[in-house]
Design a protein around this nucleic acid. Structure first.
Length: 473
DNA sequence: CGCTTTTGACCAGCGC
DNA sequence: GCGCTGGTCAAAAGCG
């Protein structure tokens, strides 16, 4: 069911994107028209095409000359035709070269985007670390110095930071215990990375409990971070644009529905895997848990989901492993991933891997009708996270909620970032919620192209309507 | 024929 | 040490 639809849609996308290679089979007029479009869209990068135009111009000159010489022989006609053919062949070759170059650029841009994401996550972590260290140093100097004074010094972010700092106070212990229990995680990860036949092997990592290995641990755990997406769907699997192969199915404890295991088959050795399971409470809800980062370029259809999950994992782990306050910075994480207030991001940090849950099961219209009920909920439940606490600590961290007003304030502060993330989340929601892939893809593209929160939200809502209608039918 | 799905077996970690 | 559980493997079956 899924594979068939996905294959077809995927082929369509490929045929649209790869229109340069398609030119080979087209006639000459089509080739020239494509070239014109390229030149008009990106003039300064296509100096070589100008040479081709010059050649055409020379041809025109020849034509003019021939028009002067009436009564031309058939041989000169052939020569002209051959010249034209040669020029067109050269033109075709150049276009092919350009096609290759553009493909390379696309691949590079894709890689750069991934690298940039990682870099941003690292920078955020660094900032959090430095801020934390300065606070700790001040506390050493002045034992009476309270955290509240530090919060005051933080200035306009005080409200945002206060919620973060509230969690930091509790998370400091978690950081210590995290290091203490690092070997436990390391064991688990080591087990996860037992020699395998594919890209999974590359995840092999040393123990986490030595400070010098913290970076390595971060990197490895980055791949181990899990992003869980909850979406209503009657289909056995949500359409996220990637190609998956099922490699196992197990009955999980406490759930009558089996859990299916998939791995990405878009590239050999891609380490990304996902688990799909229906929610035990509401079996119309499909819980898809992604793990790992794609090691290959993604089609546009898969980009939205992959980017969102990757960003979620990156931002979660950017502050979760070596930095205590990073873990307890759910507000930043949540609003970065899902600024759309109708969505709920949950950082569950369930053992043994930290997990972000993106809840897309809530109906946006409900929130639009009742804006007062809008909540951007960030729920931190570290009970399973390596910590000093048992279940008793859960209440200390859970239920950290922001009002809609606060969310708006934060969105204004980080508007630039949020607008991108918003379009991203909207695209993701559209794709995941809508079994009609083409409509969802159109929504994703339109949201990205427009870059407008309003537009993206609208398209998402529209597609959610479509989805519900389709499900109803 | 090649790819995907199914399904039982196997392995490692964890709790008792 | 033993049983339970989650996760993976791989052979067999199914499918286009």
């Amino acid at each position: 069911m899924y594979s068939g639809e996905d294959k077809n849609s995927h082929r369509k996308v490929l045929s649209e994107v790869d229109f340069f290679s398609a030119c080979k089979s087209n006639d000459d007029d089509d080739q020239i028209s494509v070239k014109k479009e390229i030149n008009s869209s990106d003039d300064h990068n296509h100096i070589t095409e100008l040479d081709v135009n010059t050649g055409l111009h020379l041809l025109t000159t020849n034509s003019d000359q021939s028009s002067v010489d009436d009564g031309v022989s058939s041989t000169s006609e052939d020569t002209r035709a051959k010249n034209k053919l040669t020029i067109l062949q050269i033109e075709l070759e150049k276009m092919n070269t350009e096609n290759q170059r553009l493909r390379g650029m696309l691949s590079q841009v894709s890689n750069n985007y991934t690298a940039l994401q990682m870099h941003i996550a690292n920078e955020i972590q660094k900032q959090q670390n430095s801020r934390k260290q300065s606070i700790l140093q001040d506390e050493k100097v002045d034992h009476q110095g309270s955290v509240s004074r530090q919060l005051t010094e933080l200035g306009p972010n005080s409200r945002d930071s206060s919620s973060e700092e509230r969690t930091q106070s509790g998370s400091t212990l978690n950081a210590v215990e995290l290091t203490k229990n690092g070997d436990k995680i390391g064991k688990r990860i080591g087990r996860e990375n037992t020699p395998d036949s594919d890209g999974w092997v590359s995840n092999k990592v040393p123990k986490l409990n030595t400070p010098k290995n913290i970076d390595q641990a971060n990197e490895s755990t980055m791949r181990k971070a899990r992003v869980s997406v909850r979406a209503r769907s009657e289909a056995p699997m949500i359409t996220d644009g990637c190609q998956w192969r099922k490699y196992g199915q197990k009955m999980a404890k406490g759930n009558p529905c089996p859990r299916a295991y998939y791995r990405c088959t878009m590239a050999v050795g891609c380490p990304v895997r996902k688990q799909v399971q229906r929610c035990v409470d509401d079996q119309t809800i499909l819980i898809t848990t992604y793990e790992g980062t794609h090691s290959h370029p993604l089609p546009p259809a898969a980009l939205a989901m992959a980017s969102t999950t990757s960003a979620a994992a990156s931002m979660l782990l950017s502050g979760s492993m070596s930095s205590s306050d990073g873990l307890m910075n759910p507000n930043l994480l949540a609003r970065s991933i899902l600024p759309n207030p109708s969505s709920i991001a949950t950082i569950s940090a369930s053992a043994p891997f930290p997990t972000v849950t993106l809840d897309l099961t809530h109906n946006p219209n409900q929130f639009q009708r009742n804006p007062s009920s809008t909540q951007f909920q960030t729920h931190v439940s570290p009970q399973n996270f390596p910590s000093n606490g048992g279940d008793s600590n859960q209440s200390r961290f859970s239920g950290l909620q922001l009002s809609n007003q606060t969310t708006q304030l934060q969105l204004n502060k980080g508007q630039h970032h949020a607008s991108f993330a918003d379009s991203l989340s909207a695209a993701t929601a559209a794709i995941t919620a809508d079994p009609n892939f083409t409509a969802a893809l159109a929504a994703a593209i339109s949201s990205i192209m427009s870059g407008s929160n309003t537009t993206s939200t609208t398209s998402t809502t529209t597609n959610n309507h479509k989805a519900s209608n389709l499900q109803g039918n």
